[in-house]
Amino acid sequence: MDWEEIRSAAKDKLKGYCRVCPVCDGRACAGEVPGMGGAGTGAAFRANLEALARYRLNMRTIHGAKSPDTSTNLFGCELGTPILAAPITGTPYNMGGALTEREFIGAVISGSRLAGTIGCSGDGADPAMFDAGLEAITVERGWGIPFIKPRAYEEIVRRVRMAEEAGARAVGIDVDGAGLVTMALKGQPVGPKTVTELQKIISATTLPFILKGIMTPDEALLAVEAGAKAIVVSNHGGRILDHTPGAADVLPAIVQAVGGSVVVLADGGIRNGADVLKLLALGARAVLVGRPLVIGAFGGGAEGVRQVLTRLTAELRQVMILTGCQSIKSVDSRILYQG
């Protein structure tokens, strides 16, 4: 199955919940939450792409970076690429239901491993969503990272214990889920967390703990204070709060604020290998990709997911050659044009 066949099959199965547009920029699906679009006007969705587009790359071709190494190590996992699968849930109300939650997340977790990387699973109003992710991670012998919504302490810890039993490599909370419309519609209590509350949660496990949804330097420092091992700079794909800046807009200041005291990851608006390289150059250790993998999973299952991740990695390798980057560790802000 080639990429166009995958796209065609995805468009049919997604039933308009995602139009599989030639350019995935959030314009056709603005305001569609539930759904794959951005909240309100969709400005936050578009801001992710616009922020990345503002950066330009310095082309360098007099160097020895002929065969770049895209491998990296994250939470003790040796990965062939710094591109991870972001946690996504809600196939019935966000994606039309042609795939069950278990079929979808199974494709994401297995496809990620086939591509030499690791996938994340999510949480939602239906307990089956989190359970499906853990089942998929268990099948892959713990090769996955589950994220939990900012629920009550007891509910979070119960899910952390499930992640431990599944052998997950790390665990996280997408703290930006505090205002998620779909959770509110299903009567699931979620909300902001204080540093003290986060410290209590994080101290309840020995797994590396990730806080996803950090968008300001001050909250990045609070995440460090709470004991997080990693943060994800993310505006939840623009699906939480309208009019936020894009992840690439705020990433440099956050990286500078934490100064290497925590692993910084980023997501939002990644559509090609150049986008990946830009976020790495801005200071991210690795990136998470979301919406493109929905198309891969619905259009081609685990193989579709593998193709998306493999394609992005091949594009990343090509732009590394043309910017003089021999390895992921060698990527820094020098590759970005400062006009």
Results as ranks from 00 to 15, higher is better:
G227H: 03
K212T: 04
T194M: 05
H236W: 10
T194C: 04
A220K: 00
E219K: 10
T205A: 14
T182D: 15
V175S: 07
T194D: 01
G191D: 13
I231G: 03
I231E: 00
V190S: 01
V171R: 06
K186F: 11
I201H: 02
S234F: 10
M183N: 14
L185Q: 15
E197W: 11
I231H: 07
G172L: 05
V195N: 01
A163I: 04
L222G: 00
G213N: 11
G187R: 13
F209H: 01
I210H: 02
G187N: 12
Q199T: 11
E225F: 03
L221W: 07
D176Y: 07
E225K: 14
S203G: 12
V195W: 00
T205Y: 03
A163E: 03
L207G: 06
R169F: 13
L221I: 10
I214S: 06
K186A: 14
P192S: 12
A178W: 10
G213P: 04
G167F: 09
A230R: 02
T196K: 14
I202R: 01
A163V: 04
R161K: 15
N235E: 08
A178V: 12
V181W: 06
V181N: 11
P208D: 12
A226P: 03
A178I: 09
Q188L: 14
A166L: 00
K200Q: 14
G172E: 08
V171P: 03
T216R: 14
G179C: 09
H236Q: 06
E165Q: 15
G177D: 10
Q188T: 15
V233A: 04
I173D: 03
A204R: 08
E164P: 12
E197N: 06
T216W: 05
I201K: 07
K193N: 02
L221S: 04
I201M: 07
R169G: 03
G227L: 02
G172A: 12
P189T: 13
K193E: 00
L180K: 10
I173W: 15
A168T: 13
V190T: 15
I202Q: 04
K229W: 12
K193A: 08
P208W: 10
L198C: 09
K229T: 12
G191V: 09
A184Q: 15
M215K: 09
A230F: 02
V224A: 09
I202G: 06
G172F: 00
I210E: 03
G227A: 06
T182W: 10
M183E: 15
M162D: 12
V181I: 10
I201D: 06
E164K: 13
V190P: 04
H236G: 01
P208A: 11
A228E: 01
E219H: 13
G213Q: 01
V224R: 02
V175Y: 04
L207V: 05
P192H: 11
E165G: 12
V233D: 03
I210W: 02
L185E: 11
I231P: 01
A178D: 08
A223I: 00
A204G: 13
Q188P: 01
K186E: 13
A168Y: 13
K229L: 04
V190Q: 02
F209M: 04
A168W: 07
D174F: 08
V224M: 07
